[in-house]
Nucleic acid binder design. Structure first.
Length: 211
DNA sequence: TTATTGATCCTA
DNA sequence: AGGATCAATAAT
């Protein structure tokens, strides 16, 4: 395990905080921390550096058409994990948002990890801040798969979320850290909607981008 | 029932 | 530019 950065006290995010429009929650989750806890007692922390919002009426949302076995959790109450398999080989993690009955979620697209897990191969580990730089990569790094879908975020669960540190919030308030809002990645529908947010100049965002 | 698609990532 | 690889969804 190679340390990348340290973190101070973490305050858990309660489900009601997530029971808002995904368009509000997505930017608010940037700068928060995702914690992955294993049965072994090992815990990994990742600073959320990039998110995307998916809403009802959004053609890119998996819940756009009908309620199915896969997307059912998005119709439920906020604070649950929605995990799905993409392109047959990667998993993606979402936080379910908004009121019960309103299908919406926030996709976690990139994390800055506090440590590089042992199971990451040496080649990848040479660039520590790229290990979780993408929705598929972060699920691989944190061993997130379909077994975690429809599970609640919580301090006694495999996954939980913590609020921004006061230092991060201050940096946002003083514009030392800036959020960029732009279009989402990899979509054929709803590609023009500016519903992605990321930390400007952060080395762990999912792709190299200008401005 | 079979065919196509996809909120990705890596290699060349 | 192309391939890996498979569940959900669309088409037959």
């Amino acid at each position: 395990m190679k340390p990348i950065l340290t973190h101070s006290s973490l305050t858990p995010i309660p489900a009601p905080w997530l029971a808002r429009s995904s368009l509000e929650v997505a930017p608010d989750l940037v700068g928060c921390t995702l914690v992955r806890q294993f049965d072994s007692g090992l815990a990994l922390h990742g600073l959320i550096v990039e998110t995307e919002a998916y809403t009802p009426g959004d053609p890119a949302c998996h819940a756009y058409r009908n309620r199915t076995a896969r997307n059912a959790v998005m119709f439920g109450s906020a604070g649950m994990a929605y995990v799905y398999l993409i392109y047959g080989m990667y998993h993606c993690l979402n936080v379910v948002t908004d009121s019960d009955g309103v299908p919406s979620a926030v996709l976690i697209r990139a994390l800055q990890l506090d440590t590089v897990p042992d199971w990451i191969d040496d080649r990848q580990a040479t660039k520590p801040h790229r290990v979780a730089a993408g929705p598929g990569k972060l699920c691989r790094a944190l061993k997130i798969d379909l077994s975690l879908t429809a599970q609640p975020f919580g301090v006694n669960e495999p996954l939980w979320l913590a609020h921004r540190s006061s230092a991060f919030q201050q940096a946002i308030d003083q514009a030392e850290i800036r959020l960029v809002q732009t279009t989402r990645i990899g979509l054929t529908q709803g590609a023009d909607l500016p519903w992605r947010w990321y930390i400007q100049n952060n080395p762990a965002v999912s792709k190299k981008m200008i401005e």
